[in-house]
Each structure stands twice: as structure tokens, then as C-alpha cells.
Design a protein around this nucleic acid. Structure first.
Lengths: 145, 145
DNA sequence: CCTTAATCGTTCACTTGCTGAATGATATCG
DNA sequence: CGATATCATTCAGCAAGTGAACGATTAAGG
């Protein structure tokens, strides 16, 4: 009756292809001494959508303690500055340094290169459709544009 | 110049959406006391593409030692049988029990339900396009059909 | 004011998922 | 027969992330 295969399921394919994508992205990030979450944090800062570490944690869907270690690393390499909010001195506001935003654009172009590599076998029409569908899904699940 | 955002990158979106998908799939599998990789193993067995644990490990892109623990768990719950290959008694051939294949179809329908839930906001055209594009990508990167 | 409760960042112990190096059993080749 | 390779298994350990404390700060109530 229902001979649909697990492997042809969207959920399963999204999962495995997503793992492949982040693996390869990690590999490209390795020379910069960064992991995908570091770059995600830089991207949040660049978007200006969050200031305090707690806000960032919520936006990234991650524990606040993880933001601490990500920020530690980024600060140590000079990509990010930590500033106590003078209005509320509990808050730690993170800002991109010039070096940090340069790093972000490097990593973004790396992601673009990876995109063309991953989708080399797709027709332009398929590629457009994929972009549109994933964009829709991302928006629908509360991910940043 | 290049104001493309990291978050609109295919690699990044595939990664985050893939993580969301496997998270939700895990949640649906939890009542069955299974993880995605367990179901992946069941699916490999059902496809008949592999017999020995080493073959399975290669197909799944995973360390042989992981297959051991996955098979341990599946065997303990009666979903899988371990049989020494009489022709080569080093080999452990895994076979699905009736209970195992029943479990697989349950998990597959769970994945299908999740699919419709995840893609509720897509038009039928977009959904078709997504299926086609992901199918292409999966084939291209050596994943089972 | 002064106490009590909430909030933010940080640390740390711990869980989870996975790998890679031994080990033992079996098979193959010279 | 002896040397070597192969398969499954075990085990120690790594990487990523969480959650429960804790200190510092702020806000709220009397």
C-alpha cells in the first residue's frame, strides 16, 4: 500500500543534506579558526537585530552559556568587542570590529562558493525553485532573512 | 558591493533547516525509543543494499563501532536479528524482523506527517520543486534514493 | 531607604553522539 | 603451517551543547 521510502522523505533528506552542508561549511571555515555558530553570531551582530548576549542567545536558539564561549573566542581573535551597557551594567553588548565584519564577508563568500559547488548539477530553474522554497521555509520557521 | 547575507545562503539555510527537521523527527521518534540513525539503519536493511555491519557503516557514512551500538539497541528491542554468516563467520548479517519492518513503516509515516507539517505554507508547485531539487542533490551526493 | 526578588553574564559539571585505537575471532595467502 | 588481513566489539576520549549554580547588578514593595 504505502511503499514510500524513508530516504525520499523531505524531513530525512533535509536532515542528511543539512548535515553535509554544515560539514563542508565547517571545513571551509576551519582555516579561519571558526565554526558555523561563530559565523552565525557575527551575522546576527551585522544585522543589528540584537545587542545583549541574552538576545543573541534567543535569536540563535541556543543556551546563553554557549554565547559566552562563542563571544570569548571571537573577542580573543579581535572580531568582536564587549562593552558593558552603561544604562544597565549587567548587559554585555557585543559589537563587530572592522576585522570582524571583514571576516564575516569572507565567510559569506565561502558559503556562496560552497553553494555553487553543492548545486552544480541543478538547472537554473531548479536552483531558483530551491532558493524560493527554502526561503519560504526559513521565513515560516522564524529564521532571519 | 556584495551585500548578500549569510543567512540567505543555501549552505546556511540547508544547515539550519536540516537541524530543525532532524530535531522534530527525533521528537516524533522518541516515543518509539529510537533516534534518526536507528531508523536510517532499518531503512538500509529494508532496501536490501547491505548485509554486513561494515557495509552498513560505509553506506551510512559512519564508524563501524557506531553500527554496533545501533544494532545492539535494535536487537534488544526485537527489531533486528543478528546472524553469523556461515560462509564467513566474522561477518554479522543483520536482518529485519517483522516487528522491525513494522517499526520502519511507522517511522516513515511519522516522517511524512512531519513533511506536511513543515511544508504547510508552500504551494503545491513549490513543494514539487523542492522535492525535485532535493532529490537531485541527494542523488548527486551519493545518498540512497 | 532597605530588603526581596528578578535579570544578565559567567562558570562548571555533565550529557550526548560520535570517532579512533586496541583486541579477539576468523579467514586468506604464501 | 605461519603471517597477514578483515570483521565485530569494546573502550577511552573528543566536541558540542545544556542546565544548574553563583556573583554582580537592577527593579519593586513596603
Amino acid at each position: 500500500m504505502n511503499d514510500v521510502k524513508l530516504t525520499s522523505t523531505l524531513a530525512f533528506r533535509l536532515g542528511t543534506l543539512g548535515a553535509i552542508a554544515t560539514d563542508r561549511f565547517s571545513a571551509r571555515l576551519a582555516p579561519h579558526d571558526l565554526k558555523p555558530k561563530h559565523v552565525g553570531l557575527l551575522s546576527v551582530l551585522a544585522s543589528g537585530a540584537a545587542a545583549s548576549q541574552l538576545d543573541i542567545a534567543k535569536l540563535m536558539g541556543v543556551a546563553p552559556s554557549l554565547v559566552v564561549s562563542l563571544a570569548d573566542h571571537l573577542e580573543a581573535m579581535g572580531a568582536v568587542r564587549r562593552l558593558r551597557d552603561p544604562a544597565d551594567r549587567r548587559r554585555q553588548t557585543l559589537t563587530l570590529t572592522d576585522e570582524g565584519s571583514a571576516l564575516l564577508t569572507e565567510c559569506t563568500t565561502a558559503a556562496c562558493e560552497l553553494d555553487t559547488e553543492l548545486t552544480a548539477g541543478l538547472t537554473p530553474t531548479q536552483l531558483d525553485a530551491l532558493h524560493e522554497a527554502l526561503g519560504h521555509l526559513a521565513a515560516e520557521h522564524g529564521l532571519p532573512a
